[in-house]
């Protein structure tokens, strides 16, 4: 099965998923009652009227975690090809990746010690 046959199936699947959700929504349009009322449009905060702006400020630690993740996630991109082919490669390439992981870990240790990972 060729490259295009394989990936066109993935594309078709994505379209199928879209259609699935879309038909469900159409079905509910047809079947469900629909009565617009002002109170229904209010954000739900356990029955109380919403207080303040409807956008809460998110704590900065979430962004920090996101940044740390971003770096690690992208580094795994380099580990993927290595993990597949390392057995057929020269010895020093094998150790280079170990070194790479070690450096990466140094970064983690640094972040840890700096308190990036503390969830206070």
């Amino acid at each position: 099965m060729s490259f295009y046959d394989q990936w066109s199936a993935i594309l078709i699947a994505a379209i199928a998923g879209f259609i699935l959700v879309f038909t469900a929504l159409i079905a509910t349009r047809i079947l469900a009652p629909f009565a617009r009322e002002r109170a229904k449009g209010i954000s739900y905060e356990c029955g109380m009227l919403p207080i303040g702006r409807n956008w809460a400020q998110v704590h900065v630690r979430y962004y920090l975690i996101a940044i740390v993740f971003l770096l690690f996630d992208v580094e795994t991109v380099f580990i993927f090809p290595w993990a597949i082919t390392y057995l057929s490669l020269a010895e020093f390439i094998f150790w280079q990746m170990i070194l790479f992981i070690a450096i990466l870990s140094l970064g983690l240790v640094y972040a840890w010690k700096r308190g990036v990972l503390e969830w206070k």
Binding site: A24, T28, R29, L31, A32, F34, K40, G41, I42, S43
Partner: peptide, 12 residues
């Protein structure tokens, strides 16, 4: 039952 429930989109 779920299909028959009203579909609400909040104002905000």
């Amino acid at each position: 039952k779920l299909v028959g429930k009203e579909d609400i989109r909040p104002k905000n």
